[in-house]
Design a protein around this nucleic acid. Structure first.
Lengths: 242, 242
DNA sequence: CGGAATGTTGAGCTGCTTCAATCGTCGTGG
DNA sequence: CCACGACGATTGAAGCAGCTCAACATTCCG
């Protein structure tokens, strides 16, 4: 049974800009259905031209690019509320793949109707652009981190960022969030080798900064983690939900 | 004297999607004027809330972020046809600074009227979103390069990308384009140190892959450069112009 | 002429990589 | 119930790509 947008559990969270009743109604019509996929499934493939766009509702995933030499770059982690497939929707072709790390449920929209949004719902179109700009912002920050920080700072930053996003979604409990990725995924996200990632995690664990095992990330002192990452602002920006 | 959009020299280039007469007319109305700045001027400042948006017409610049520890990450190079200020326009605050490297001329738009685009010109709003998605794509690619490639590949990639973009703008002559940046700028764009950048450039020069001196970048064998960068597709995507 | 900015080069060091081996966990099939 | 293989985490060792430091060259401009 598909959720009605009116009852969408994400909509009412603080991180998401509130929607008018009209907007909710429109989204409901725009929504084609729901997709549920198992852990490990590929949702969108680099180079493909998907007829569908999605908003993640439940579960987490990864966006990544494959390099010509076989390496992989994780572009970011996909969390509930994230919109995926915009590139295919606009430019006709995905520039990265999206894969489910846990079981995921996603809202499905039809690419053909994307255009309707621009014609009939300028507010929603504005929000879509906002999301694209937000993604751009996030990637710019990531680029700066990967380009300019050392291993420990990168890892601290990656975990901090993830924790804060999860927290904003109400998915943090007592300093703990689900973090069901492999060390390889984190390494690929931060431009580090697996071995170095492992050793750096160990050091952070020993210094009681973060603990990450069996899929759980534990942060007792957020400020300390932020210090290790050398960031001063780790607030989560309010944003629209599509 | 300000250029009329109808006579805009960029509009008719292959890289830019052609516009209908109506669109041109609307852009002309949307356009507030032109801004001309000297080399070295800051056009938009990180954290600021600019009332204006711009499209670069002439000259080149840089987008960059400042890090808490004083380092700098160049996010990308700004070339004619690039739209700058979208983040401020949507999210209310720039996440990076934009600075002119040479003298630049920019089309000026008013942020207040951005909303009008969404209401009255859905096609143009669509294009705006497209541009944001394109930027996201580019940053994703950059992230992958900086995160996963070695110094030589990064530099070859950076120069290749720049050359191709300039070429698409009709600004390449016989394998030569203007490249009026400092080595430090390239280093900051690719996450390398100045010294290593310098030495790698020397090696590429000696191997006759690229020559870059006195502000001119010379590429005699594009394929060879692409090989050094380990990329197989270096075509420039057609895109909208705002 | 002097000073600032940029480019060039050498030397030495280290953060990170690669290689390689081991361990624990878990699901599967005999 | 146990053996086996697959996968991920962990650890040690060795090497090097790229960093920092430092000096010097070149160009340009007031």
């Amino acid at each position: 049974m598909s959720i009605n947008c009116r009852n969408c559990p994400l909509r009412t969270l603080q991180v998401f800009r509130s929607m008018s009743a009209d907007e909710v109604k429109f989204m409901q019509e725009f929504k084609r259905g729901e997709l549920s996929v198992d852990a490990g499934s590929t949702i969108l493939m680099e180079g493909s031209n998907s007829p569908q766009l999605f908003t993640a509702l439940k579960g987490v995933g990864l966006r990544y690019k494959n390099m010509p030499d076989g390496q992989r770059q994780v572009v970011n982690f996909v969390l509930p509320g994230d919109f995926v497939g915009l590139q295919a929707g606009l430019m006709g072709e995905m520039q990265h793949s999206v894969e489910a790390t846990t079981q995921m449920t996603l809202c499905v929209f039809s690419r053909n109707e994307l255009w309707d949004i621009f014609r009939h719902q300028p507010e929603r179109a504005f929000d879509l652009t906002w999301l694209a700009a937000l993604e751009e912002h996030f990637l710019g920050e990531t680029l700066a981190v990967v380009g300019r920080k050392n291993g420990e700072q990168r890892i601290a930053w990656g975990l901090l960022k993830y924790y804060c996003r999860m927290d904003a979604l109400g998915l943090a409990n007592n300093g703990q969030v689900q973090f069901p990725y492999r060390q390889q995924d984190l390494a690929d996200a931060l431009g580090l080798s697996l071995v170095h990632t492992n050793k750096t995690l160990k050091r952070l664990r020993e210094r009681q900064v973060v603990r990450w095992d069996s899929g759980i990330l534990r942060v007792s002192n957020l400020r300390l983690l932020a210090e290790c990452a050398d960031v001063d602002d780790y607030s989560v920006m309010e944003r629209p939900l599509i």
